[in-house]
Every structure is written in structure tokens, then in C-alpha cells.
């Protein structure tokens, strides 16, 4: 029997929930392939330029990397709790979504501060910018920093996408009443946790090769 109360291609809200989660997991699997390809480029660079990668990595502040990892773990806890509340159609899930949003903005603020420092120190070897690194294996170091900016930049773009979706959810929050209206929270949480997993790999690979 079709649910005439909502405009949906599914017979029940449960069916719709499983279908949207299924779609999100397939999307995340494709995202994993993209990040894996980039990490393979990083791996070959690191194997060919062990010295340059280690020296370049020591220019990053591992404390800021660790702090951002902690912030993302907290944001994952916040959105997991938001999902649990949304699953019970508890509208207070919106508060936890707002907390997730704030933690995401804090993460991007710290990341932006790091990028600004690296640009000021001349450690961005692209777009015609001068590369001011003066340690051993400059080619390897330049390769590391290109990988660093591509990986952290792509990760930050995913964070921005997630924040935009949370913003849309909160903007339409007052219209969401029933359990089926909250499926978007669960799907968004899946995406947010995936972005957290990507950073979990980036933190040791970029910041902890030779921490100073």
C-alpha cells in the first residue's frame, strides 16, 4: 500500500530509509576510491623521496594536526548522537547538528591558519609561487607539499559540502516532524563520519612522518 501522506517513490518510510542509506554507502565507496588513488600517488612519492617527505613533514605542526583530529572525533560523536535523537523524531537533534557545524567550522579555521602559515613560509610549490624550502631533497619536499595541499584541500572541500548540507537541514528543520523526515540526518551523518575517516588516515601520513 502506498503512503499517500508523502510524495515518495517508496511504499514505507523504512524502505525509503534503507534505499537512501544504500545510495549513500555506494557514493562513499566511490569517494574512497578517489582518495585511495591520491594516497597511492603519495605512497610512491614517499618511497622515492623518503628524505624529502620526512623533512617536509617536519615543517608541519603536528599539534595542530592532533587538535584537528580531536575536533573531528568530537564532531563525529555529536552527529552520531544527533542521528540517534533524529531516529526517535526528537527535534533536539538540531542542537547537536549545530554543535557538529561549529566543530566543523573550527576545524576549517585551524586548517586555514595552517595554510596561511605555509603560504607565508613559501611552502606552496604550485601556481607559480616561489618554493622557499632549503632542506635536503627539495624535489621530494615539493612533491610532499603538493600532495599535502591536494589531500587537505580536497578534504576541506568535503567538509564545506558537509557543512552546507547541515546548514540546509537546520534551515528546513521546522518542517521536519516524522521519523521519515529525519532520514537526511542519518545519511548526512554517514557522510560526515566518512570525512572523519579520511582525516584519520591523513593525520599520521602527513603530520607524523618525522614530528618535530
Amino acid at each position: 500500500m502506498s503512503d499517500t501522506s508523502r510524495d515518495s517513490a517508496f511504499n514505507t518510510g523504512t524502505e525509503e530509509g534503507i534505499a537512501t542509506a544504500f545510495g549513500m554507502w555506494i557514493f562513499l565507496a566511490s569517494e574512497a576510491m578517489m582518495f585511495a588513488g591520491l594516497l597511492l600517488v603519495y605512497t610512491f612519492g614517499r618511497l622515492d623521496h623518503a628524505t624529502g617527505f620526512a623533512n617536509a613533514s617536519s615543517h608541519l605542526d603536528w599539534r595542530l594536526g592532533a587538535l584537528n583530529t580531536a575536533i573531528l572525533i568530537c564532531s563525529s560523536l555529536a552527529i552520531a548522537r544527533a542521528e540517534a535523537r533524529a531516529d526517535r523524531a526528537d527535534r533536539r537533534a538540531g542542537v547537536l547538528l549545530a554543535v557538529t557545524c561549529l566543530l566543523g567550522v573550527l576545524f576549517l579555521g585551524i586548517k586555514g591558519y595552517e595554510w596561511a602559515m605555509e603560504l607565508r613560509e613559501g611552502l606552496a610549490p604550485f601556481a607559480g609561487l616561489a618554493f622557499a624550502y632549503d632542506g635536503p631533497d627539495a624535489d621530494g619536499a615539493a612533491f610532499f607539499f603538493r600532495c599535502y595541499f591536494i589531500l587537505t584541500g580536497l578534504h576541506a572541500a568535503h567538509m564545506l559540502g558537509g557543512l552546507a548540507c547541515i546548514g540546509w537541514l537546520l534551515a528546513t528543520w521546522r518542517h521536519r516532524r516524522g521519523r521519515a523526515d529525519f532520514h537526511a540526518v542519518r545519511d548526512l551523518a554517514l557522510y560526515w563520519h566518512f570525512v572523519d575517516i579520511v582525516w584519520i588516515f591523513l593525520y599520521p601520513l602527513l603530520y607524523l612522518i618525522a614530528p618535530a
Partner: peptide, 18 residues
């Protein structure tokens, strides 16, 4: 070890949070 711990953390997120 770094990748092993990262994989364990990823599994924790996948099973514990997702």
C-alpha cells in the same frame, strides 16, 4: 604501525558510529 592504528580507528568509526 601508523596505518594499522588508522585502520583500527576507521573500523571503530564504521562500526561504532556508522
Amino acid at each position: 604501525l601508523a596505518l594499522g592504528i588508522a585502520a583500527a580507528k576507521a573500523a571503530l568509526v564504521a562500526f561504532g558510529f556508522m
